[in-house]
Amino acid sequence: MNWLGWLHDFLADPAHRSGPDSIVHRLLEHLAFSAEALGLSALVALPLGLLIGYSGRGLFLVTAVAGVARALPTLGLVTLAVLLAGVGDTAVLLPLTALAAPPMLVAAAEGVRGTDPDVRDAARGIGLTHPQTLLRVCVPAAAPTLLAGVRTASVQVIATATVAAYVGLGGLGRYVIDGLATRNYPTTVGGALLVVLLAVGVQLLFALLIRLAAPPGARSSPRTRARRTGGPSEDPATVPASPPALVKEVP
């Protein structure tokens, strides 16, 4: 039997149409759980990252956290949490939250740090307070970077939540793990495909959001703009049209 046949069997199974093991239910479970982990993580990582990026203090912390996070074995962390806290959703929520934090922390810090220093200087110089400068100038300027961080975190959490079915979590991972356990390959394949589709869908959603977050005209890189600034005037409004008043009366 080929995998298309397996997929057909998976979708045709009445248990996957309605009830607690239905695709819709599992999908919502998966989304709710991932969103919860992401939300908790964002609540801690984003403000911390913004402050670190704005103040420039504690950047070493961000680098360290990012490095450690890359080396963390996902499954190991989930298993460890269950061993320590016992089987249950809360026990799995913690490692997922911990996994989502580093990409968001790094993105928030780097995004704010990357704000054009002239723009920050001007913001302060015309009378914005520090919180106003951060929230009204740096955060909007950092929005694309920030969203990219949230996207990375989301995809990571969605993927890891699948593996977490191994320790009893619901969601789409149930199909994969249970299918494997009972040698029910149609279920495994169907579950895997759904997870992939979900991850790709989330990626696309963020790609769209990031596009929307970039201000119009900013798609030309700063370098192109600098060249335009130095080039000859293409702007009739800046060519002197009024009578030259080039000299001042000397008192």
Binding site: A122, A123, R124, P215
Partner: peptide
């Protein structure tokens, strides 16, 4: 500082306009 600056015009070399506004 903030109040003082709101009462003083400030123009810098690269204009420093807010790109998202």
């Amino acid at each position: 500082a903030a109040g003082l600056r709101r009462g003083i015009g400030y123009v810098i070399q690269q204009a420093g306009l807010f790109p998202h506004r």
